[in-house]
């Protein structure tokens, strides 16, 4: 069983603050592993615990994303590689999925299963996983809560639908996109940390994976950002300070009554 886990390093969005000049201040913002991807990693590790598996983590990003890959190796992932090239920078989801697909075809084409996080906490598009599946022309199940079992050439998963859960069988190879869950993601052991420290993480450029860089980056992406702006608020709102809890409670109850009409 060969599993690929896709991992994205994201800024800790809680750390990002607005400056007085209406720009985003990213100074001192820490980079973390996208939360859904930690669950994707945990899911892969549980398959490995249960039936054995070789797990490769793959990430696309700047050189510093290597630290995210070392972290998942410390959790128990076997190998990792980083796709990093200035021609990849500013790729949208479609371009990112093309790069990932090409890298997987060139370097790990013997995989059985690809596990992605359902969405990334920074962009929150939930598009890269599905687009990767389509680039590879294989099965896709999104919104996956958990895996029931893997046997021969198929996987059975539980998928969160709008108001219920469905049990879905997918042909392997497949891409599954995992939601965050209530279960715990394992902490690295000391032995894992040591292994991660020594691990060799190859960095692949567009050339290394025979990728035509014209199809990635800002130029190669079908979408682009025309403008970015601060979300606007309600114009005539008021902010009330210095009330006691009792006063605030009464005010709230009055206003709720008034607004409800």
């Amino acid at each position: 069983m060969k599993i690929i886990v896709c991992v994205k390093q994201v800024p800790d969005t809680a750390d990002i603050k607005w400056t007085e000049n209406n720009t985003l201040n990213r100074d001192g913002v820490e980079s973390v592993i996208n939360p859904c991807d930690l669950f994707a990693t945990e899911t892969a590790l549980r398959i490995k615990d249960r039936q054995g598996a070789d797990i490769t983590a793959i990430s696309m990003g700047p050189k510093q994303a290597e630290s995210a890959l070392r972290e998942v190796i410390s959790m128990g992932v076997d190998e990792a590689c980083l796709l990093s090239d200035r021609y990849f920078a500013a790729s949208d989801t479609a371009a990112t999925a093309r790069v990932l697909a090409k890298a997987i075809q060139e370097k790990r084409s013997d995989f059985d299963l690809i596990i992605c996080g359902q969405y990334a906490s920074d962009g929150d598009t939930a598009q890269t996983g599905p687009s990767l599946a389509q680039n590879l022309g294989i099965s896709l199940v999104t919104n996956v809560k958990s895996i029931e079992k893997i046997e021969n050439d198929k996987i059975i998963v539980f998928k969160q639908e709008e108001d219920f859960v469905s049990r879905i069988e997918a042909k392997l190879p497949a891409v599954i996109c995992i939601l965050t869950g209530k279960y715990l993601v394992r902490m690295p052991k000391i032995s894992g940390r040591m292994k991660a420290q020594d691990a060799k993480i190859p960095i692949y450029t567009a050339e290394d994976i025979n990728f035509d860089a014209a199809y990635s980056g800002l130029k190669g992406s079908p979408t682009y950002v025309k403008k970015a702006f601060r979300p606007k608020g309600r114009s005539d709102g008021e902010i009330l300070y210095d009330n006691s809890a009792v006063q605030s409670a009464e005010l709230l109850l009055d206003k709720i009554k008034e607004f409800k009409g």
Partner: peptide, 8 residues
């Protein structure tokens, strides 16, 4: 700032 009434 995004509310009709904000109570601190």
């Amino acid at each position: 700032k995004l509310s009709d009434i904000g109570i601190v």
